[in-house]
Lab assay of single mutants.
Amino acid sequence: NKFNKELGWATWEIFNLPNLNGVQVKAFIDSLRDDPSQSANLLAEAKKLNDAQA
């Protein structure tokens, strides 16, 4: 379904953000699993944090 596809894509993108540490990645992935409907918002937050830590 739509959420599974978005969840998978967001998970892959978060895993590939180079400036996040393992704890941050795990926290974002756990949040995605808790509420897949928020995948776009969580991915945006992860990208912002990644950019801030560059």
Rank of each mutant, 00 (worst) to 15 (best):
N1A: 04
N1S: 05
N1G: 11
N1P: 09
K2F: 13
K2A: 14
K2I: 14
K2W: 14
K2M: 13
K2E: 15
K2Y: 12
F3D: 08
F3A: 05
F3P: 12
F3G: 08
F3C: 08
N4W: 12
N4H: 13
N4K: 04
N4A: 06
N4M: 09
N4E: 14
K5S: 15
K5R: 07
K5D: 15
K5A: 14
K5M: 10
K5H: 14
E6Y: 11
E6W: 10
E6Q: 07
E6K: 05
E6V: 09
L7P: 08
L7W: 12
L7F: 11
L7K: 03
G8T: 14
G8P: 08
G8S: 14
G8K: 14
G8D: 13
G8N: 13
G8E: 15
W9D: 09
W9H: 07
W9S: 12
W9I: 13
W9Q: 15
A10L: 03
A10S: 05
A10D: 06
A10E: 08
A10Q: 08
A10C: 04
A10F: 15
T11P: 05
T11R: 08
T11S: 10
T11H: 06
T11E: 15
T11D: 07
T11L: 15
W12N: 13
W12A: 11
E13Y: 15
E13N: 04
E13M: 12
E13Q: 12
E13T: 07
E13G: 03
I14V: 06
I14N: 02
I14K: 02
I14F: 06
F15I: 15
F15W: 10
F15H: 09
F15C: 11
F15D: 03
F15G: 04
F15Y: 14
F15P: 02
F15A: 14
N16Y: 07
N16H: 12
N16D: 05
N16S: 10
L17H: 01
L17P: 00
L17A: 01
L17I: 01
L17Y: 04
L17E: 00
L17R: 00
P18R: 05
N19M: 06
N19Q: 03
N19H: 14
L20C: 01
L20F: 00
L20K: 00
L20D: 00
L20G: 00
N21M: 07
N21P: 01
N21Q: 05
N21D: 13
N21V: 04
N21C: 06
G22K: 15
G22E: 14
G22W: 14
V23W: 14
Q24N: 01
Q24A: 02
V25H: 03
V25F: 04
V25C: 03
V25Y: 03
V25N: 00
V25S: 04
V25I: 13
V25T: 03
V25R: 14
K26S: 10
K26Q: 14
K26V: 07
K26T: 10
A27N: 13
A27F: 15
A27L: 13
F28E: 01
F28V: 01
F28S: 00
F28A: 01
F28D: 00
I29F: 03
I29P: 00
I29M: 08
I29G: 01
I29S: 02
D30E: 12
D30M: 11
S31Y: 08
S31L: 14
S31A: 14
S31H: 10
S31F: 08
L32S: 01
L32K: 00
L32F: 04
R33S: 07
R33G: 04
R33P: 00
R33M: 15
R33V: 10
R33W: 14
D34N: 15
D34F: 11
D34Q: 14
D34C: 04
D34G: 10
D34M: 13
D34K: 14
D35A: 05
D35Y: 10
D35M: 04
P36G: 02
P36F: 07
P36L: 04
P36N: 03
P36R: 03
S37F: 07
S37M: 07
S37G: 08
Q38P: 01
Q38H: 06
Q38L: 08
Q38C: 06
S39P: 02
S39E: 07
S39W: 15
S39T: 14
A40T: 09
A40E: 11
A40P: 06
A40G: 08
N41D: 05
N41Q: 13
N41G: 07
N41V: 14
L42A: 05
L42H: 02
L42F: 05
L42I: 15
L42R: 04
L42D: 00
L43R: 03
L43Q: 02
L43F: 07
L43Y: 07
L43D: 01
L43M: 05
L43V: 15
A44I: 08
A44V: 10
A44Y: 10
A44Q: 09
A44G: 05
A44F: 10
E45H: 06
E45R: 06
E45P: 00
E45I: 11
E45M: 12
E45W: 08
A46H: 01
A46F: 05
A46N: 00
A46M: 07
A46Q: 01
K47E: 03
K47C: 06
K47D: 02
K48G: 06
K48W: 07
K48Q: 10
K48H: 08
K48T: 06
K48S: 09
K48E: 08
L49K: 03
L49D: 02
L49I: 11
N50M: 01
N50I: 03
N50F: 01
D51L: 09
D51M: 13
D51V: 09
D51I: 09
D51H: 07
A52K: 11
A52P: 01
Q53E: 04
Q53L: 08
Q53V: 06
Q53H: 05
Q53M: 14
Q53C: 05
Q53D: 02
Q53R: 04
A54R: 04
A54Y: 08
A54H: 09
A54D: 07
